[in-house]
């Protein structure tokens, strides 16, 4: 699916960078809307998937289009359920595009403010994995609450989970901590710094 028509090394627009990173050529999208029709959260999104693709198509027209895509709530609402990719007549891997846009949005510090809690959850999750190698659900939830400010949400679930043996008070740990350290050090996560 590679194409050299965006091969301007000096100033690549967002569509070209997406092509480089995902192999998805947004020019192939003919705006049929099938992705938006099937997306479980399309009605929650500011730009349903087909419109995000259209914003990328227009990226060469001016920086405001790429900006709209990167600042969209959509990229964070995308659940990666893969239904759009599954049904896309052009076989465009839209979930991969969403991943690439999320990464770029973080890098450019353009995360939509409404996505705060979603991002906080992801970061809490990765923090837990960073320090123990595995997800420590208890620790993650505490971390998430600190990051998101949603202190009371879900508080009622914890005692029940503890009671049925689903919540551990101490984390499980990976023995080879250095391996984990190397992986996290080697992948420069755009999401590391706190919002």
């Amino acid at each position: 699916m590679s194409s050299d028509k965006h091969a301007h090394p000096a100033r690549k627009d967002l569509a070209a960078r997406v092509l480089d990173r995902t192999g998805v050529d947004v020019a192939r999208c003919y705006q049929c809307g099938k992705c938006s029709a099937g997306c479980p959260l399309a009605s929650e999104m500011d730009f349903p998937p087909s419109q995000v693709m259209h914003l990328l198509q227009l990226a060469g027209m001016g920086p405001e289009y790429a900006d709209m895509a990167l600042r969209s709530h959509t990229v964070w609402l995308c659940l990666t359920c893969e239904i759009c990719f599954c049904r896309c007549p052009m076989e465009l891997d839209i979930p991969a595009v969403m991943d690439a846009l999320r990464h770029e949005s973080l890098r450019q510090k353009k995360v939509n403010p409404r996505a705060r809690s979603i991002l906080a959850f992801h970061r809490a999750f990765l923090d837990s994995v960073r320090y123990t190698g595995r997800l420590f659900e208890m620790g993650q939830v505490v971390d998430y609450k600190l990051r998101s400010g949603h202190f009371l949400q879900d508080l009622l679930q914890a005692p029940w989970m503890f009671l049925v043996g689903k919540l551990h008070l101490l984390p499980e740990r990976v023995r080879d901590r250095r391996a984990l350290k190397r992986i996290f050090a080697g992948t420069r996560q755009a999401g590391e710094e706190r919002p």
Binding site: T80, R102, H122, L126, R134, V174, I183, Q189, A190, G191
Partner: peptide, 17 residues
């Protein structure tokens, strides 16, 4: 000595991770 697969959080934030 398995570790977490990274789940949604990892691919949302960093491809290599």
């Amino acid at each position: 000595d398995w570790n977490c697969c990274g789940a949604t959080a990892a691919h949302n934030l960093d491809r290599d991770l």
